[in-house]
Design a binder for these strands. Structure first.
Lengths: 148, 148
DNA sequence: GTATTATTGAAAAGAGTTTTCATTATCAAT
DNA sequence: ATTGATAATGAAAACTCTTTTCAATAATAC
């Protein structure tokens, strides 16, 4: 994902944002992470690279990146304050309940279901959320997962 | 939904809970609502029926009802602090983006998709969330929905 | 009725997020 | 390169939502 770092910075610039060290650090962390992160996690990781990074800047940058569609919030059992790089395609999330690893997949075809629901309920469906939870290959192998 | 009020109270009693006015009010409000509610909304509505109801009691009752599987938290764009009566069957949610009206539906068959994803990703899938958003018939008719 | 103990509401504490504000740093125009 | 306009920053304060604490009260079993 690291190769997208510069792309994101340019997209930010195109939106009128300045390219600052703080933003670079935050962008890099998000692009490097295999799982969705809380603002505080981004902050902690960021502090290791930029000594006096502010938590407020993390919040502001996440907000801007979400606005630009580069990251998305991830909902899960514990809340909905996790941020993950978004993909452009029409894809859905698959999340490991053990390590949090997030993977995108596509290939769902829910159009038949949609049509069926429109017919029976009268709702005009505009959006759908599909999210899967499970155990990733690495966690399955490690055997640490007892609640699989 | 009002006919379930007594059922819920009995289920609470079976769990060792006492039947108090505060709980009755909260249970009734949840069962009467066509949409998922925030704790504060339950509290406001509850105060109209029980003058000195405490917000804390609302939180505690919602927690207990969720524990018993009678209500569930609903995730949406703005957060995940909405509570809605749950259904027993394996159903999914359909929510009106305009008025919030929630409806359950069943009939999805995602097993083929699951099998496909298990094969390609190696994830052992344990759970899936499917939630649809759209405009309900009433809101469509009222014509108030411009962003349909 | 009485004793036991779950439940209550108010207040305080806590966690997470947003706002305010003076200072600093980026970028565009020289 | 220098300068000026202003976006961005970090610290502190404010704010919202939720949980904990605690003494008083009320529901249930006997």
């Amino acid at each position: 994902m690291a190769q997208y770092s510069e792309t994101w910075m340019k997209l930010l610039a195109a939106d009128g944002c300045r390219q600052t060290p703080a933003r670079r650090v935050i962008v890099d962390i998000l692009l490097e992470s295999p799982r969705a992160l809380e603002p505080m996690e981004v902050f902690s990781a960021g502090r290791e690279r930029l000594a006096n990074l502010g938590l407020v800047t993390v919040y502001r940058t996440l907000e801007k990146l979400e606005e630009l569609g580069l990251v998305q919030r991830v909902h899960h059992h514990g809340g909905c304050n996790l941020y993950l790089r978004a993909t452009n395609a029409h894809e859905h999330l698959l999340i490991c309940s053990h390590c949090g690893k997030a993977e995108y997949f596509s290939g769902d075809n829910l159009s038949a279901l949609m049509a069926d629901i429109t017919r029976t309920t009268g709702f005009a469906i505009t959006e759908h959320w599909l999210q899967l939870f499970g155990t990733c290959p690495a966690c399955t192998r490690s055997g640490e997962v007892i609640h699989a």
